[in-house]
Nucleic acid binder design. Structure first.
Lengths: 236, 236
DNA sequence: GTCTATATGACGATAGAC
DNA sequence: GTCTATCGTCATATAGAC
């Protein structure tokens, strides 16, 4: 929107590069020590400078968190936009709600568990006094609107039942995604997306969602939630 | 289990009381400043003592977090046991799965949002180097087993479909609950349980759950997810 | 046993020299 | 822009009075 189109001089380019370097190190440290474990001293140490020098680029530690918050949402937003499916409308006729939502959920949850530092910062409130600024919050709102518009589009296409409001469906949907991410990061932070105890529950959870909010006529009768794979002997 | 039955002398009684007082102040401070914002100095200040005196009762700050972690799970476990419904089996014949699970969910989520400090400590990982000890984790396991046994009982009673494993259902159930708690605490920490943007979604979410895992024959045909209450003018 | 007094090192942050 | 020097606060730890 208000992005500067005037060419940046060397001074400003170098400055932005340094800022990005600071943020890169910050994300790395947060991934290792936890979001609240981030320290300016450690950033400076890894960059080969002294802590006070960081104040040239960020007026406070909270400002740094703010930049990280904004960058995290922007990256996640970019990942979801890159996925893009419904907007292209190619799937309109053939695909079913369950498949569309599962693909969307997989992209979202995969990004979250593979970026645990960002995920904690974006979805929880781990930093004592920190509240994101309105500017930093903007891409979060943008992603919310993106998901909402997607659901509304699916409703227009007849894949989501028409007798519920999209915001209503969106609310339940975000609960599902945030539940998977929270449970996985809190209880199995070292498990991969493909083998996680909770990420692997996505097909069932999305099916649960699609059974409720999909169009009854179009939703297939797949009521069985992947019953007892690798059945035990004591299970009859 | 291993609770000491030998009567405690005054010395030990006083010591335990002091420990409880420390924990009370700690919970209060965490609620105000966030879990990672807890400081021994602030606890000592509010108790009218000096910080080093706290080391008489807790060998480190992590030990204090450990005690808080254990106490939080014990309190939540007690709240869920006090609720108690299926164990008493009075509801066996009359009640439906949706109602039983909704009541259970309401007790759980209400406790979590009304004890945000505990909730953050128990469900997230906000403290950089802290990992709960096995002893502190025990009541968490106990609550998990409690919920699992409850689901198994509901399965025996014919309220939960028999073709899925209880652990499977339990996993999806915890995702639902943790999703509501996470979303509510992260996005509306100051909203009450009764008016929260996400806590009020519980009926729909539990219905979604019950539709999938309840016995088809017994689950009523309540497929409509409370459509558009307080309809707007622009909504036709 | 419990307390006060005190020391250490890390942290975020600011002022000012260069 | 980067540095040194410095401040106040924090967790941690030890010494010693009572």
């Amino acid at each position: 929107m208000t992005t500067e189109t005037v060419p940046l001089d060397r001074r400003q380019r170098r400055r932005l590069e340094t800022i990005e370097e600071v943020l890169d190190h910050a994300v790395e440290i947060m991934a290792e020590e936890g979001v609240a474990g981030l320290s300016l001293g450690e950033i400076a140490r890894r960059m080969g400078i002294r802590p006070p020098s960081l104040y040239v680029y960020f007026p406070s530690k909270h400002a740094l968190y703010d930049a990280l918050f904004a960058r995290g949402w922007r990256e996640l937003l970019a990942a979801m936009r890159a996925h893009d499916d419904v907007a292209q409308s190619e799937q309109a006729g053939g695909a079913e709600l369950n498949d569309l939502m599962l693909r969307y959920a997989r992209v979202f949850v995969r990004w979250a568990v593979e970026h645990p530092a960002y995920a904690q910062l974006l979805f929880w409130r781990p930093v004592p006094g920190f509240r994101p600024s309105d500017e930093a919050y903007a891409p979060a709102v943008e992603l919310y609107d993106f998901g909402l518009a997607r659901l509304a589009r699916l409703q227009e296409l007849g894949l989501v039942r028409p007798d519920v409001e999209a915001v209503h469906v969106q609310r339940d949907w975000t609960v599902l995604l945030s539940g998977v991410v929270s449970q996985q990061l809190a209880n199995g932070p070292d498990e991969s997306f493909d083998t996680g105890r909770f990420t692997t529950a996505l097909p069932d959870l999305v099916a649960m969602f699609a059974d409720r909010y999909g169009q009854p006529t179009r939703t297939r009768a797949s009521r069985k939630p992947t019953p007892s794979r690798r059945g035990h002997a004591d299970q009859r």
